[in-house]
Nucleic acid binder design. Structure first.
Lengths: 212, 212
DNA sequence: GCCGCGATGTATCGGACCGATACATCGCAC
DNA sequence: GTGCGATGTATCGGTCCGATACATCGCGGC
């Protein structure tokens, strides 16, 4: 999952580790707390070894000569390679069971702007399936095994059930949206478009919820 | 976390691994999918090595002599020890940062029937704090950084924000309930009460949500 | 002027937990 | 009588986390 997220972010612009972590936190803040450096740096090393990313020279801007006194060990900027983009496209398109758990789904969803519509639909429906199963499990427990459990545990299940129902409804909305074509045309993910920074046209269009 | 959950469940009755996993799934179904054997068995071994649990002989019921032909390698039943109960009481009472993340909180909450009221309040308030911070983070992103992110990512954040607000409200209710004394008197957690199976008196009393 | 301190920045290590896999037994349906 | 799904125990490699260490930079207070 981390691999996918890193590849996705570096596709927008080169970054060093610290920055990457901040962007990751901003983008995935809804689903996981904050990525740990203990995962980040080893993963960066792995991606580099695989050839998906490379280190880029720092400060390409002004040709200010650094006097070498301060040794300048500083920041290491990473940049995605062509193979990396290919790898990203492959990862984003394929959906296994891990695509539907909380974290996996969140990461995939966060990069829906770079995912074609068919895949988006496949993932949304898979996620819905998964949550529906979880929901059924909770209903079973609340029905059949209710007397075996204490009141706090039951309350926990009820809260979880509520969250499931809510998410299913949310997914329904998103799915309907995708189908109706109001969802954005997929911005070509893999194909080279050289210099296009971060203007993402797509509005998924889930109507803003105006609660009474 | 697994350690705490196992100790808690074995306190209710002795069990073998498979059973333990099923109970774990039933009790924690709202917060995590299903515990993996790759975690369960090593943890059982660790707990046994520490002396918190012991293996108990199988089939203590009828003194049916097994003819030893089938070697009877069968099920391994685990049982909590006195030290284990002590350990559980200690784990359940202390609250660090990991007590407030999704999994940690869920596990603690699932054993609230064995937790004294002061601790319950402490944990509920800590969790609320944590979720409020997450909520603020999401609001920040949705406010300040909205234009930097694509529509799908924003939708994800909105859904997350919604979940946060909802959980804070839920926690408020629970906290008010604990304070008002309508919450159950704590069933003595550590002290020996020999033969008391699974009659948990406590109703936390969050009024059943009757949605229109 | 200089001192601390929080933000920035890179990095490692042990441990928790997962997913895949292997293998053996039991009951029962076909 | 045989296959097959549920029960049951167990290991292995890999991902990710939390704690920790350490170095630099800018800025405000004394």
């Amino acid at each position: 999952m981390l691999e996918l997220a890193i590849l996705g972010l570096l596709q927008e612009s080169p970054m060093h580790g610290y920055e990457l972590r901040k962007e990751l936190t901003a983008k995935l803040g809804a689903i996981r707390a904050a990525i740990s450096y203990g995962s980040l740096y080893p993963t960066l090393r792995r991606l580099q070894a695989a050839g998906w990313i490379t280190e880029a020279a720092e400060t390409p801007a002004t040709a200010e000569e650094v006097p070498a006194l301060t040794s300048r060990r500083g920041r290491v900027v990473y940049k995605i390679t062509a193979e990396g983009k290919e790898r990203f496209a492959q990862l984003i398109a394929q959906a296994g069971p891990e695509t539907y758990d909380d974290t996996g789904f969140g990461v995939h969803f966060a990069f829906f702007a770079r995912t074609d519509r068919a895949t988006r639909l496949r993932i949304l429906e898979g996620r819905r399936r998964t949550i529906e199963e979880r929901r059924e499990g909770l209903r079973d427990v609340l029905g059949r095994a209710a007397e075996r459990l204490d009141a706090y545990t039951l309350e926990l299940q009820r809260h979880g059930l509520d969250a499931c129902e809510r998410e299913v409804r949310w997914l329904e909305e998103l799915i309907a949206n995708e189908r109706s074509g109001r969802a954005p045309a997929a911005p070509q993910p893999g194909t080279a478009d050289g210099r296009r920074d971060n203007n993402n046209p797509p509005p998924p269009g889930t109507s803003r919820k105006e609660r009474p």
